[in-house]
């Protein structure tokens, strides 16, 4: 069998020499190691004042995007729920009534859209599956709660604010390759929105 690393050692049950049985050299060695660590630079990040640097493509809390007019993009197709390996997404679809065009972009929309944050593994497959560029993962953290109920995030927590300045920027989540891929004629219906994603 091929060794997985070069550090593999064959264990031998040899008798310890007198020097080893005295333990004193080993203890001194240990003490010197801990003393060296005593003076080392500390790795602690002092949280509230100091935050860890996030990768630009960090996969955190989800956002349901609105289009440039402020209408919800999601059309409740359910592809994200199907793609989700953790089965964290549930939704109830509804038909758009007359006069709601400003609220929902497509004729069908999600009346209820819930993600169970305790089930979610933040893989980002929902985002990949979405044909409407509606769901994205952001670099925001999921807040803690005292009860399980609080972790089922509905539309109140997922849909981004209407206000243009408060929209959540997901441009970093769109790698160059993906953006290019989405210029394919097959995605023509989406192109204009991809550009306006902000």
């Amino acid at each position: 069998m091929q060794a997985l690393t070069t550090r593999a050692k064959v264990a031998v049950n040899k008798k310890m020499s007198f020097k080893e049985r005295m333990y004193i050299p080993a203890i001194l060695g240990g003490l010197s190691i801990t003393l060296r660590h005593f003076f080392k630079k500390k790795v602690t990040i002092q949280y509230p004042e100091q935050t860890r640097e996030f990768a630009p493509v960090y996969r955190g809390h989800h956002v349901l995007k609105r289009d440039e007019n402020g209408a919800e993009r999601c059309t409740a197709c359910g592809l994200c729920a199907v793609a989700c390996p953790a089965e964290a997404i549930t939704m109830v679809a509804a038909e758009r009534k007359k006069g709601e065009e400003a609220l929902y972009r497509e004729e069908k929309y999600a009346a209820v859209y819930e993600i169970n944050m305790l089930r979610c593994i933040f893989c980002g497959l929902c985002e990949e599956a979405c044909p409407k560029e509606a769901i994205f993962l952001t670099d925001e953290m999921v807040l803690t709660d005292y009860a399980r109920k609080g972790f089922v995030h509905g539309k109140d927590k997922l849909v981004e604010p209407m206000d243009k300045d408060k929209r959540i920027d997901v441009s970093k989540r769109q790698t160059k390759e993906v953006a290019e891929f989405k210029t394919h004629p097959e995605f023509a219906h989406n192109q204009v929105y991809t550009k306006s994603l902000k």
């Binding site: 003393l35 005593f38 602690t44 002092q46």
Partner: peptide
């Protein structure tokens, strides 16, 4: 504090 420093932490602060 000593425990923390030896484990590369800061300890109570």
């Amino acid at each position: 504090k000593v425990a923390a420093f030896m484990q590369d932490r800061l300890g109570p602060n």
